[in-house]
Design a binder for these strands. Sequence first.
DNA 1: TGACATTGTGTGATCGTTAATACGTCGCGT
DNA 2: ACGCGACGTATTAACGATCACACAATGTCA
Lengths: 339, 339
Amino acid sequence: MGRPIVRLKDVADKTGFSVNTVSLALRGSPRIPEDTAMRIRDAARDLNYMPNQVAKSLVSRETKTIGLVLTDITNPALTQAAQSIELALAERGYSTLFATSNNDLDEEKRVIAMFQSRQVDGMLIYPRSHRELDHIRQLRRANYPVVLLVADPDAGVDAVSVDERRGAYRAVRHLIDIGHKRIGIIDSANPLGNHEKREGYDAALHEANIAVDPQLSADPQGHSVIRGYWAMDKLMRLPQRPSAVFAANDSLAIGALRWTQKNGLRVPEDVAIVGFDNIEFAEHAATPLTSVNYEIRLVTDLAVARLIELIGTEGALPEPSVTLIDPELIVRESTHRRN
Amino acid sequence: MGRPIVRLKDVADKTGFSVNTVSLALRGSPRIPEDTAMRIRDAARDLNYMPNQVAKSLVSRETKTIGLVLTDITNPALTQAAQSIELALAERGYSTLFATSNNDLDEEKRVIAMFQSRQVDGMLIYPRSHRELDHIRQLRRANYPVVLLVADPDAGVDAVSVDERRGAYRAVRHLIDIGHKRIGIIDSANPLGNHEKREGYDAALHEANIAVDPQLSADPQGHSVIRGYWAMDKLMRLPQRPSAVFAANDSLAIGALRWTQKNGLRVPEDVAIVGFDNIEFAEHAATPLTSVNYEIRLVTDLAVARLIELIGTEGALPEPSVTLIDPELIVRESTHRRN
DNA sequence: TGACATTGTGTGATCGTTAATACGTCGCGT
DNA sequence: ACGCGACGTATTAACGATCACACAATGTCA
């Protein structure tokens, strides 16, 4: 409140030139002769002048700021994403305003509105849900640059994402290939949530003529280790246990692994486990975890590049484009090949 | 670029009132009669008017934005901090601009300057180093509200932090108490870095009349699991191995644990391991990890509260205050008590 | 020597909002 | 009937910067 601010006017007063001359000089205009410019630069340095970006933004109508909306930054996959997004944006001269929606739709809407009010030049969003994107589509219709970080080819909004459906398919396909028939899944079953991984799971089973057994599906209601533990508990208490489990992310998988340790089961002999995202801890888990891997940098770089492109377009935005990154499966001990 | 913006003027034109009347009405001034206000609000809603915070900030001289400077958000402890800081700030109507310094001093300075230029109302900073705070002290002298998230009672800057020295002391003291005499430490040895944990380690050893053996110190040069693995490798290859190891954070500790698994050592029988921060994965590691625990929410809430207080003070800032949160040790299997 | 560029610098409007103040139009009291 | 306060609304000037343009003071050429 009321901190002292050094303005162009102060530099102008000190040097005797007008505000305009000072502004031009500091921006290196060729219209200002070198010795004038030097005197002005010196004075600016002495006063420790820093341009006021707020005033600048008001004139230029751009804030060089983008808004990043995450559901929850403690999800290790999102943390990585946040890190590399911030980096990619900083490299291009953009600052990152970030906020979390806590997986709440109203909160997500509020955050987006706040970002608009703050005149961010664009937004990168991990939406809470694929099914409720109206508010985001509306943004785009209002010519607002937005790129989603989960994919839905029909969303009508630009998106760059790992192909979760394909990743899940690869993981489950691998389990089938090594002989598993009774394969559990630990993934959110929220009808409003994202179904891609579940679809990939279903697809792999169908392809192998294995019926999808709803019993083998456990909803962890979250993404933390402990949630994975309890979901695994549910699956393993079934009369007919699964011989393998696909977990929608590595934290859940580590929770499942932990369950096997506590209950004296061997992985992969008694039950095989596959995770998703290949976070650092996956490789170094008690039993190194087979996991779906992808270059998060690739996803975020493409998303940022697309966003910057949208910001740079004059007039109406181009047709939305959706880019899916194809993930690979890293096979480790948690799913050793059966013979 | 050139997105259409609905301004007060547009609402004014639509209703026939002046810009000022509209402004007053939308802010609920009692000077505007109810039916006028209602007509104006309706028009604003129809046009989907959103106040331009940039213009508002220029007038009010406050942006309701704070800058958060982290060294590296992938450090799980910092991720947690970022999450709860964003939450605490949002609750008080502040937005969070965040940037990472990548543990580089020049980068840290650049980020801070950028935040100043963007007129943030205050900053929360995880400095790269305790020893190089001049640029931050300077900020404070210029009456700029700053709160550090690592403590140094003599920094001359406000700070709220877990007491790392004491936490490390507790951890090492515990190892001594259960009979260990040869205790290794995995922590940065950078002379420009933070020494608190190392000091706590030294203090505990001195108190027990155990000489500090420099051989037993390994610098992981980072905070990731794999760094901990290699640091552990260095320690365990010594002719006289340590019987216990204190790691400066849980990722390092998990790396150390992983080393024992790969090399067929039992924890805690062959070597005990203690971590720091008590992240989620610590409890669920192959051998549940003894770790130094503290309420990160407490730290961040106090830091945010102090920052808001500083922002609210008229005139000169009060004397800097440093708050240290006392951590506790959570004992788990990785350091089972010896008999 | 007078017309005309060229060069360097200043003036004024503008961005969207708020704050201070001015200005009509009432109603009321005397 | 006249003045005065209250009320409702408009006008003007900020905030700090940029931009388009105006305008002197030079220098150049016929």
